[in-house]
């Protein structure tokens, strides 16, 4: 079942494992900074997946050099474009998460989300 297919798709498998690592970090870590690191691992794993799927062995990046214009010379450019868009999105959500973390840290002097929730309950706001 796992023989040649696994070897063939080793990049995709690594990407999915990384995705799992990032996902569980974002979900389970208590520390907010570690959560954000998990988020970035998760997003990067998706880019790795896209890059692997867009790559065709033996071909170059789709930038026309030396006048070579055959389609066969280049890899699929669409996934690269998707990766770029994805990076923009991921940077902006990371920025928002970091700014929220700073806000919470200034107010409560801790990065532990559960502890913050407990204090909020005590405040009874």
């Amino acid at each position: 079942m796992f023989g040649p297919n696994l070897f063939h798709n080793v990049g995709g498998c690594v990407a999915v494992i990384l995705f799992g690592i990032g996902f569980s970090n974002l979900l389970l870590q208590k520390n907010l900074i570690k959560k954000i690191i998990g988020l970035n691992i998760m997003d990067t794993a998706v880019y790795l997946y896209l890059a692997v799927k867009g790559y065709i062995t033996g071909r170059a990046a789709p930038i026309v050099t030396d006048g070579v214009q055959e389609v066969e010379a280049y890899i699929n450019p669409v996934p690269s474009g998707l990766v770029l868009t994805g990076i923009v999105v991921s940077v902006s959500v990371t920025a928002i998460m970091l700014s929220l973390t700073i806000r919470l840290y200034r107010r409560y002097h801790t990065l532990d989300l559960d502890e913050i929730s407990m204090r909020l309950k005590k405040e009874g706001l």
Binding site: L26, L27, L32, K35, V93, I96, M97, L100, T101, R103, L104, R107, Y108, L113, I116, S117, R119, L120, E123, L125
Partner: peptide, 12 residues
């Protein structure tokens, strides 16, 4: 405090 915490949870 409540809304910031809610926003963090929502984002996650």
């Amino acid at each position: 405090g409540r809304t910031i915490e809610a926003a963090v949870r929502y984002m996650i």
